[in-house]
Simulated scan of single mutants.
Amino acid sequence: MIKVLIIDDEPMQRQGIVRLTPWSDFGAEVIGAAGSGMEGILLAREHRPDVLIVDIKMPGLSGLEVIARLREELEAEYIILSGYGEFEYAQQAISLGVCAYLLKPLDDEDLASAMRLAAEHIMERRLHLQAAKGAEINGTHLDLPEEEPVRGYLLHAVRHMEEHMAEPITVREVANELGLSVSYLHKLFARCGTSFSAYLTDCRLRRAGQMLREGDEKIYAVAAACGYQDTRYFSKIFQKHMGVKPTEYRHRKNL
């Protein structure tokens, strides 16, 4: 689920955004609504939102000051709300990397478009969560210990998982392939800060996301190619980890 925080000093606008926006359409929920920049910063630090909708001009801290303070602490998408007379702030907002710059009075469809764009960026980040660290094996990433033969065992295990992803892979099968005990293989993955099952799920969902982005296969075909024979279960797992259903994810990338 995508967590949204709203920061706006105008009560009617703030409450209208909370109540009238169809958050479930974006796989999102509002986790807080602040009436000032400082309150917004405190809520953001507490709840770690994925999207912040921020009024650009508020008493005390402005929306731009809020974003400047938080962008080094949060990996989030920012949607700015601005009055017609505040275009001079647009360039600074762009330099801060805001996702969208919306004019007041706020149009519902403009906000919906901004949320769809923000959701797409968030999905991409979640799919590539480990992309900045670890070893890359066929597009999959894992923090590997430096010593041998531990590194070699893990590389072999991951390659086997990638090559046989469509099959019902078990930890015992992979352990046998490596000539290891099941308990020792579990310990190797634990040393990387994950588990065998969690990493296998990550591999499968990463492949599923790639197929949904780059192809037009039916959802059941994507599920089967990633090792899920039950399409309903695949959709449930995908939504749990990605915040949206596979059909919604594909729809968003085509917008």
Results as ranks from 00 to 15, higher is better:
residue 9 D to Y: 06
residue 12 M to C: 06
residue 15 Q to W: 11
residue 16 G to P: 02
residue 20 L to I: 04
residue 24 S to T: 15
residue 25 D to A: 14
residue 26 F to W: 02
residue 27 G to S: 08
residue 28 A to E: 12
residue 31 I to H: 11
residue 33 A to I: 00
residue 34 A to V: 02
residue 34 A to I: 00
residue 35 G to I: 01
residue 35 G to D: 13
residue 38 M to F: 12
residue 40 G to I: 08
residue 40 G to T: 07
residue 43 L to K: 15
residue 44 A to W: 14
residue 49 P to R: 10
residue 51 V to C: 07
residue 57 K to M: 10
residue 59 P to S: 09
residue 60 G to Y: 03
residue 60 G to K: 03
residue 63 G to T: 05
residue 65 E to H: 01
residue 66 V to K: 09
residue 67 I to M: 00
residue 71 R to V: 07
residue 71 R to Y: 12
residue 74 L to Y: 13
residue 75 E to V: 14
residue 81 L to I: 01
residue 82 S to D: 10
residue 89 Y to G: 01
residue 90 A to H: 10
residue 90 A to R: 11
residue 91 Q to E: 14
residue 92 Q to W: 09
residue 95 S to I: 03
residue 96 L to H: 09
residue 97 G to V: 07
residue 97 G to H: 05
residue 97 G to P: 04
residue 98 V to N: 03
residue 98 V to E: 08
residue 100 A to Y: 04
residue 101 Y to C: 05
residue 101 Y to T: 02
residue 102 L to N: 06
residue 108 D to M: 15
residue 108 D to R: 13
residue 111 L to N: 03
residue 113 S to K: 12
residue 113 S to V: 10
residue 115 M to R: 01
residue 115 M to H: 05
residue 115 M to I: 03
residue 117 L to E: 14
residue 120 E to K: 09
residue 126 R to H: 00
residue 130 Q to L: 15
residue 130 Q to F: 14
residue 130 Q to S: 08
residue 131 A to C: 12
residue 132 A to G: 13
residue 133 K to S: 12
residue 133 K to Y: 15
residue 134 G to D: 05
residue 137 I to K: 07
residue 138 N to M: 12
residue 138 N to A: 15
residue 139 G to D: 06
residue 142 L to P: 03
residue 144 L to V: 06
residue 148 E to S: 14
residue 148 E to Q: 13
residue 148 E to W: 11
residue 152 G to S: 12
residue 157 A to D: 11
residue 157 A to K: 05
residue 159 R to D: 09
residue 161 M to V: 04
residue 162 E to S: 02
residue 162 E to W: 11
residue 163 E to W: 12
residue 164 H to Q: 11
residue 165 M to V: 08
residue 167 E to T: 06
residue 168 P to F: 07
residue 168 P to S: 07
residue 169 I to H: 04
residue 170 T to W: 01
residue 172 R to W: 06
residue 175 A to L: 01
residue 178 L to E: 05
residue 178 L to F: 07
residue 180 L to C: 07
residue 181 S to A: 11
residue 182 V to G: 08
residue 183 S to N: 07
residue 184 Y to H: 08
residue 186 H to W: 13
residue 197 S to K: 12
residue 197 S to R: 11
residue 200 L to M: 06
residue 200 L to K: 07
residue 203 C to T: 06
residue 206 R to N: 14
residue 207 R to E: 11
residue 209 G to H: 01
residue 211 M to L: 15
residue 212 L to P: 07
residue 217 E to F: 14
residue 218 K to M: 06
residue 223 A to W: 02
residue 223 A to H: 03
residue 232 R to C: 05
residue 232 R to N: 08
residue 234 F to Q: 08
residue 234 F to I: 02
residue 234 F to D: 04
residue 236 K to G: 04
residue 236 K to I: 05
residue 237 I to H: 10
residue 237 I to P: 03
residue 241 H to L: 12
residue 242 M to H: 04
residue 250 R to M: 06
residue 252 R to Q: 03
residue 252 R to L: 00
residue 255 L to Q: 15
